[in-house]
């Protein structure tokens, strides 16, 4: 018998769902942006830039970026938990991963809203 109390904590259910929800957002965006590029057939820089300057595409691209960074956090956290045994090193890698991803989110926003 495994006498473990399984109420009161979610044992990662929220992260499990978030990983899948962000995956679906990214898959839908990928299909959308491929379709837009195939239809618009951007031949030069101006046409390429115009795609991402469009209000809806900009909005969708930002949601894609946020989904990617959240998804990457869950995935990388799982990798550090599985392979990095020393607690201090693991904690440091968790913090560095979060800092990097938050920074990337700001970077992505600045690229998109300067268009």
């Amino acid at each position: 018998m495994v006498n473990r109390i399984v109420v009161g904590a979610h044992y990662g259910l929220k992260d499990w769902i978030a990983q899948r929800a962000t995956a679906v957002v990214m898959a839908v965006y990928t299909a959308l942006i491929v379709a837009v590029i195939l239809v618009a057939r951007p031949a030069d820089f101006e046409a390429w830039r115009a795609i991402f300057a469009h209000g809806f595409i900009k909005f969708a691209s930002f949601l894609f970026a946020l989904s990617l960074f959240y998804h990457a956090w869950i995935g990388m956290r799982d990798l550090w938990m599985d392979y990095i045994k020393p607690t201090g090193l693991r904690l440091a890698l968790h913090v560095l991963t979060i800092l990097a991803l938050v920074g990337y989110a700001g970077w992505a926003a600045s690229i998109l809203w300067r268009l």
């Binding site: 820089f45 390429w48 991402f52 300057a53 990097a100 990337y104 690229i111 268009l115």
Partner: peptide, 14 residues
């Protein structure tokens, strides 16, 4: 990811 963000930035900036 930093490389990908740089690529995207370079491709849409100027």
């Amino acid at each position: 990811l930093p490389l990908l963000l740089w690529i995207f930035q370079a491709s849409v900036t100027s």
